[in-house]
Design a protein around this nucleic acid. Structure first.
Lengths: 203, 203
DNA sequence: GTCTTATATGAGGCTGGGCTCACATTCAGG
DNA sequence: CCTGAATGTGAGCCCAGCCTCATATAAGAC
């Protein structure tokens, strides 16, 4: 955002514009979405949109960053919760289960996140930075849960688990799929079993 | 393709045009790719491109279909090979391993396939039809390998395994990722173990 | 109340890119 | 050869969509 709002009305406008952007980006994708439609959906004139977001790319990046912060906040909350209860720490399998569910819930509330994380409209450097932070959080969680697991393995899971969300999103995108819940559950079970107490012996 | 080529020269042109389309779609995505650039890369005039493909969407669909047929052909070949050796049939885990590797290899040779399978440029009905056929092949393979596995489970895996390829593609798309191979291997191991001899007891 | 600055507006400039078309060239069959 | 069909060509039409700007209004400071 080039010019941050300074008055109350401006902040409300920006909130409405970003909400509209989320909706339109989700429905059409970032490239097919038009600035005109976003402004209209927010009940604003096109000029107002450009008042706060100098380009379409800047708008996409602002939304992407906001979504990413929400995701990171969820993970950070989980981490502090775990840190405060050293006695009840889950093992790697249980943690993976919680992480998977947390991310699925997040996608319910923020379905546009992966759309933006994928599309080319956003500067690869920014996407990379977000991924790095995300992985850092996931790795920290695993390190907290089971400090003995090999760092290379933790790193691999920190890369893999967020990417598994793409599968969930793709499954949701299929309109005519009878056993969607079943498939998602199968994926979760696969992950949890892989990290379960009996399975973390590999190197 | 609205007008199929009738002469030798026309067939060569179409081949060159589709090759260029694959390259440009892969590099820029279907929406950012321009018909002008595709024609140029094929060494053809823009008019020649429109001679054979009446619209950009038709071109994308033609490429998508061609890629899909190649994928289906690989699977069909595996199936007939298996059917001809009833003695040496792999169990579900071993089959999943072969399938995973086959698909990864396919993505090496046809990296544009998932790009097209994802993007909105292609009619959802067509994409759905391709997915259905793909799932049919995978399910048939599992049914051949282990007829005893519950149909619902086979169906779930037939949905899941192709979608796992999205993860592989996403990993490949990350330029600065040190342990890419390691992560992909972890994913494969996870899948194979899930379907291995000790694991297919769930329902 | 007045002044300054933030915010609002939407007609229109401008450009890129999908697509057309009138005309040129090549090829196969007779 | 000759002729018609297939193929090749690229200037340019057309329009959607990003973005600008001149002008108007609201809101906070004093």
């Amino acid at each position: 955002m080039a010019k941050a709002p300074r008055r109350r009305r401006g902040r409300d406008r920006v909130a409405a514009l970003m909400a509209a952007a989320r909706a339109v980006f989700l429905e059409k994708g970032t490239e097919a979405a038009t600035m005109t439609e976003i402004a209209a959906q927010a009940g604003a004139a096109i000029g107002s949109l450009y008042q706060f977001f100098p380009t379409k790319e800047a708008l996409a990046e602002a939304v992407h960053l906001e979504e990413a912060e929400a995701m990171l906040a969820s993970l950070a909350a989980l981490r502090t919760a775990m840190a405060e209860r050293p006695g009840r720490r889950p093992d790697a399998g249980a943690l993976a289960d919680r992480l998977f569910r947390l991310m699925v819930d997040f996608l319910d509330a923020h379905p546009v996140f992966i759309v933006l994380a994928d599309r080319r409209s956003i500067d690869p450097k920014r996407k990379q930075a977000v991924r790095r932070r995300l992985r850092g959080e996931v790795a920290a969680l695993f390190a907290l849960a089971e400090p003995k697991v090999a760092p290379a393995r933790i790193e691999a899971m920190a890369v893999l688990i967020p990417h598994l969300m793409r599968v969930v999103v793709a499954l949701r995108g299929e309109s005519e799929l009878a056993n969607r819940a079943r498939v998602i559950d199968e994926l979760r079970a696969m992950l949890v079993a892989h990290l379960g107490p009996k399975a973390n012996g590999r190197d």
